[in-house]
Design a protein around this nucleic acid. Sequence first.
DNA 1: AGCGACATGTAAGTGGTTACATGATTTC
DNA 2: GAAATCATGTAACCACTTACATGTCGCT
Lengths: 162, 162
Amino acid sequence: MTELEGAILTLLDMEGPMTAYGVRRAFLDSPSSFWSASAGAIYPALNRMEEAGWVASKDATRGKRPAKALQLTASGKAEISRWAIDTATAIGPGFDPFRLRAPLWMRLEVAERAELKAALESRVLKRIEVIDALDPRHPDALRHALERVQQTTRLEWIRKTL
Amino acid sequence: MTELEGAILTLLDMEGPMTAYGVRRAFLDSPSSFWSASAGAIYPALNRMEEAGWVASKDATRGKRPAKALQLTASGKAEISRWAIDTATAIGPGFDPFRLRAPLWMRLEVAERAELKAALESRVLKRIEVIDALDPRHPDALRHALERVQQTTRLEWIRKTL
DNA sequence: AGCGACATGTAAGTGGTTACATGATTTC
DNA sequence: GAAATCATGTAACCACTTACATGTCGCT
C-alpha cells in the first residue's frame, strides 16, 4: 500500500462513504495535504483499491449525473490497520525538505544567512498562525496539531542554530 | 530540480568530486537517507544534471577500469543555491509517515493503543540511540541532529498524547 | 582462483505529475 | 443564461523502484 492509498483509506474510515470527487475535495481543501490531490492520482488509486477489494462502491446517481459512493470494506479495514501500526515505517524519514536543505544553509555567507533566517522564521510563524486559525473540529485537526509541533520545533532550531 | 537531485548536488558540494558510484555509496551508507539510493535513480539523475550543465565530469580511469569524477559547475552551484533558499518548499510538508498514520492511532482500542504506544516509544528511543552513536564529524551530522530533534519531539508527543 | 568492492549502466514496472475532456447540476 | 461546482476519467510524461547485466581491481 502506498502512502497516498493509506491516506485515502484513512479518510474513508473517518468520514464514511463518499464519492471519489469528495475524496479529492477533502485533499484539496486540507491545509496540510501532502500531494497535489490530482484526479490522475485519486481515481486510479481508488480503482486499484476497489479491484483489491479494500473499498466497495454503490451507485449514488442522482438525476442524470452518475456517481459512485465509496466505502471501506472489512478487508480494507484490516489492511489499513496493518498499515497504521507498522511502526518501522511510521517513524521513518519520509522525506523532509527542511532537513534536506539545512546543510547548505550553514554554508551561506553571513548576510545571506541572516536574510534566509529571517525569511524562514517569518514563513514558519505565518504557517503556525494559519494552523492556529483552523477549525479544531476539522477531521484533520490532529494532523494539524502534529504539524504545529513540527513547525514550532523548526522555529526553535532556526532561532537557536541557524 | 527534484529533491533527489538537490541532495546529490549538496553532497557533491560538500564532499567534492567523486564518482557516481561514490555518490551511491554515500547514500547507501548514510543512516538518514530518504531513498533507496538505487543505481536506477542515481545514474539517470547525474546524467540529467550533466546535460543541464550542473555537473561536469572528468575522466578518472585507472588502469582498464573506466571511471568519471563528477563535480559541481558554477551553474550547478547557482541552481542549488536557489533550491536551498526556496523557503516555501523548505518548510513544506514533504511527506511525513508519522503524521499520516496518527489519526488512526487515536481510534485504536485501549489495549491495541497501549501496545502500539510501547512499540513506537521503544522504536523511537532506539533510533535516537543510533543517532547518538553516529560520528559527529560525519558529513551528514547536521541532518542527523535535525532528525534527532524530530524524533525527540515525536517521543514527547507519544508519551503525552498517544 | 575466487570473492568482495569498484564502476556504470539498462529494462520493466509503478505511481505520481500536469493538463485536458466531458457532461450534469446548482447558484447567481 | 453564464459561471461555478459536482462527478469521472484519460493522455502524456516523469522520476522513482527492483532487478539484472557487465566488466575491473585488490586481497587472500
